[in-house]
Nucleic acid binder design. Structure first.
Length: 567
RNA sequence: GCCCCCGUAGCUCAGUGGCCAGAGCAGCGGCCUUCUAAGCCGACGGUCGCAGGUUCGAAUCCUGCCGGGGGUGCCA
């Protein structure tokens, strides 16, 4: 359990005890929170509980005609009732009514040993208690290479999945493949024309087709595999055949691109399969039988107004007979919750889907699915910059800046770091020059360097024959050592906060903080010493270095970044 | 029109009820016979978009306004 949570329990116990013993009157317990103060001298943790309960206390006392208490008096009472524990050194009262809590330096020092012994397990939480959660992310249309914006989706989605996995959830990563509908047909027909062109036929791509040069590459792949044998295909077979071939090529490419970022999916879920396996028909029947569907203007509408605070209904089946995106989304989420039974589903979408994000969870009530079970994480777009100037993309030529291009230029670690370091709702100006810079301007290298340094020290120590197994950790008392220990202990809190808010951007900020604290320790505290009388200290510090290395690697791992042994 | 997001140090951004607002970078001043100077230490730097309100306490919550972006489709 996190130390923060343990302290909250401690304060709660003190309050209960004070009430039981009659030091304080009885009133319902408020939520008790212990936070990390910003400033030094205010404890490792503090609580403003006396200020929060002073009114309740005095109202209760007034009812008993028993005078009144000040926040400081209440704080004093609570401190006296705090049960003694090994990790808490002392509690101090501070004006106007705070209780500042100081961790025991000896206990802190010994955590280095715990981390070294337990490894990553030290930081795992059990917030999820085995709940199953699906994280669906990226899910870009399979009609071409991934745009760079998709990289942000991948970074956020994968980091969320990792955070949840390490917090006691059973996680499934899913990519939703929009393999049906008008776009797919247009894609297939563009591909067909490009294929024909490769054999010198004078044909042009469809009016609203995909003009990008990558389509020619796809056509060439088909030519390599099939030669000219497809030219004679009957007209009615062309769309389906080229859709199938094109989809296969694109999906392979998507998998490769995402693998460059070390992003892997458990399931590539086909939209078309919802229609092939009867899920859509089932959903349609359910809604129809509930009276949630009606016809108007030749289309079938879903009575969204029945479930949402909205007077606008949704088109379910278009007048051309094709189900709309809303229908697919309903069927898809029916499949997620009812057929596959996920406890919780997180969809990672770009902000331009905000309207659907607002409506879909409520609409699922039509299937008896509580809206809270679907969380849609929205993130803002990414603009690419080079030398401070925005790189414009040309829609007309169909040339986009692909995720692969940027990853090849800046590297997956830097891309992950920058894409993750902004809150989801904030727009990102991604400066390629900065991400590529291998100098002090780039925090990515600073963080990884800290890990490489820790590794280097441990390597050298091993060569020198140090085996820090029974080190006397009580020797870790200097400010830099203690600061490093405190920072490492913060990681579970960072994870818990990131999970609670589904905000992975806290990780890169913490990582930088941790690296800074480690490097400061490195600068102040010589680890490897030749002096015989320093042997104990060296061993203790080696444990600390090992613990720091584990913590750094774990943090980098949560972000999907590598932790190099050498740089 | 209505709805959502953003507006914090020169720049890029954290911080969403707690005690004198933080980091990185840039700029300024120190520090390399020492485990990687891709480094360390220090000083400087802010009317938290504006105006009201709620609260013992507001960058954080509420209302209005200003500026930027997005949404509001028988596109996804």
């Amino acid at each position: 359990m996190m130390i923060q949570t343990q302290l909250e329990d401690l304060i709660r116990q003190a309050l209960k005890k004070a009430q039981k013993k009659g030091d304080l009157p009885k009133f319902p317990l408020p939520p008790i929170t212990v936070t990390r103060p910003r400033r030094e001298g205010q404890g490792d943790y503090s609580t403003a509980l006396p200020l929060q309960i002073v009114r309740d206390v005095n109202n209760a006392l007034k009812a008993n005609q028993a005078g009144s208490l000040s926040p400081l008096q209440i704080g004093d009472i609570l401190i006296r009732r705090l049960p003694p524990v090994d990790f808490l050194e002392r509690a101090e009262l501070a004006k106007p009514g705070f209780i500042n809590l100081y961790l025991s330096p000896v206990w802190l020092a010994r955590q280095a040993g715990e981390i070294a012994k337990q490894g990553a397990a030290y930081f795992k939480l059990n917030l999820g208690k085995g709940k199953s959660v699906q994280v669906e992310f990226v899910s870009a249309n399979p009609t071409g290479p991934l745009h760079f914006g998709g990289a942000r989706n991948a970074a956020i989605g994968d980091a969320l999945a990792r955070l949840l996995e390490h917090s006691g959830y059973v996680v499934q990563r899913e990519y939703y493949v929009n393999d049906r509908g008008t776009q797919m047909t247009t894609f297939a027909m563009t591909l067909w024309r490009r294929y024909q062109q490769l054999f010198g036929l004078d044909v042009s791509i469809p009016e609203d087709g995909y003009p990008g040069a990558y389509m020619i590459n796809y056509a060439e792949k088909i030519k390599e595999a099939y030669g000219d044998s497809l030219l004679s295909l009957p007209d009615e077979e062309i769309p389906a055949k080229f859709r199938e071939l094109g989809l296969k090529i694109v999906l392979e490419e998507l998998k490769e691109d995402l693998a460059m970022m070390d992003v892997h999916f458990d399931e590539w879920f086909s939209e078309q399969s919802l229609y092939d396996d009867g899920t859509f028909a089932k959903v349609f029947a359910i809604l129809r039988d509930q009276g949630d569907l009606y016809e108007k203007d030749g289309a079938v509408w879903f009575r969204a107004s029945k479930y949402l605070k909205s007077d606008r209904d949704e088109v379910f089946v278009r007048s051309n007979g094709e189900p709309g995106y809303f229908a697919s989304d309903m069927a898809y989420h029916y499949h997620k919750f009812i057929i596959r039974g996920f406890d919780w589903v997180i969809d990672v979408w770009a902000v331009d889907h905000q309207n659907q994000a607002k409506r879909l969870p409520g609409a699922l009530q039509a299937f008896g699915i509580e809206p809270e079970r679907l969380t849609i994480v929205l993130y803002d777009l990414v603009t690419l910059k080079r030398g401070g100037k925005e790189i414009k993309i040309s829609k007309r030529s169909g040339e986009i800046i692909t995720m692969r291009e940027v990853l090849e230029e800046v590297g997956a670690d830097a891309a992950r770091y920058f894409l993750l370091s902004h809150s989801n709702e904030a727009r990102i100006d991604f400066d390629i020059d900065l991400a590529v810079a291998q100098n002090s301007e780039n925090p990515v290298y600073y963080i990884q360097y800290a890990h490489a340094r820790a590794s280097s020290i441990l390597r050298k120590a091993a060569q020198a024959g140090f085996i820090p197994q029974n080190a006397n950790l009580d020797l870790l008392t200097c400010p830099e050592e203690q600061a490093l220990l405190r920072k490492m202990l913060q990681l579970p809190e960072v994870i818990a906060n990131a999970v609670e808010r589904l905000a992975p951007h806290h990780l890169p900020h913490y990582a930088l903080d941790l690296a800074k604290t480690f490097t400061s320790f490195y600068g102040h505290c010589r680890v490897l010493s030749e002096l015989p009388d320093q042997k104990d200290l060296t061993e203790a510090r080696l444990m600390l270095v090992l613990a720091a290395k584990i913590t750094l690697a774990y943090t980098l791992g949560l972000m999907g970044m590598s932790a190099p042994e050498k740089m």
